[in-house]
């Protein structure tokens, strides 16, 4: 050890610092594939959107379709249901005020994420609640024909998932990710 050059030892050795830095970059880089392997895989991403054929859903009829593993209500609204929803647009007592037109891209089609904003139960189909809408059976929240919360413990309206009408007959729920 007597041969150790004290001067060299004390100097901030650039080479060792640089090598350590390059090595650290490599370790961080090597971690990345492992971290990324937890993100949704290609086959899961391919399920990001759900296509629904609307041609067989009659006015007044509601279907439940799975989208990203969650239930989505698709309601073909009747004129009365649309009017009932629009009539209440200005209701000041609403907990989470929103206009019906903001929620339904096309007035006759209402697309809702069927998950009660209270504690995540699936509400019952159209016509089960007051206001002609949906009743959540768990804790008695009532949603109207636009899916807005009107009564009960839920804090917010039923969410409207991202959706687009590819053509008159085809609805695409969700955004493509793959």
């Amino acid at each position: 050890m007597s041969m150790v050059d004290q001067h060299e030892e004390n100097r901030r050795d650039f080479l060792i610092m640089a090598t350590s830095a390059v090595g650290a970059v490599g370790v961080a880089g090597a971690a990345w594939p492992f971290i990324r392997s937890w993100s949704p895989s290609a086959d899961v991403l391919a399920q990001a959107t759900t296509e629904v054929d609307l041609s067989s859903i009659q006015a007044g009829q509601m279907v439940t379709v799975p989208w990203q593993g969650k239930p989505v209500f698709i309601l073909h609204r009747t004129t009365q249901q649309i009017e009932a929803a629009r009539k209440d647009d200005g209701d000041a007592s609403m907990r989470d005020p929103e206009k019906d037109a903001e929620r339904a891209k096309k007035a006759e089609w209402l697309v809702l994420l069927a998950s009660c904003t209270h504690l995540g139960c699936v509400p019952q189909p159209i016509g089960t609640g007051e206001y002609g809408g949906f009743l959540c059976p768990c804790h008695g929240t009532h949603y109207d024909t636009s899916g807005r919360v009107r009564k009960g413990p839920a804090p917010k309206n039923l969410a409207v998932p991202h959706h687009e009408f590819k053509n008159d007959k085809t609805l695409v729920i969700g955004k493509a990710l793959a």
Binding site: P33, F34, R36, S37, S41, A42, V44
Partner: peptide, 13 residues
């Protein structure tokens, strides 16, 4: 094959 094709960096693992 799911690991090889679908999982992110699965082929590397």
């Amino acid at each position: 094959e799911h690991i090889m094709r679908d999982v992110n960096w699965g082929w590397l693992l």
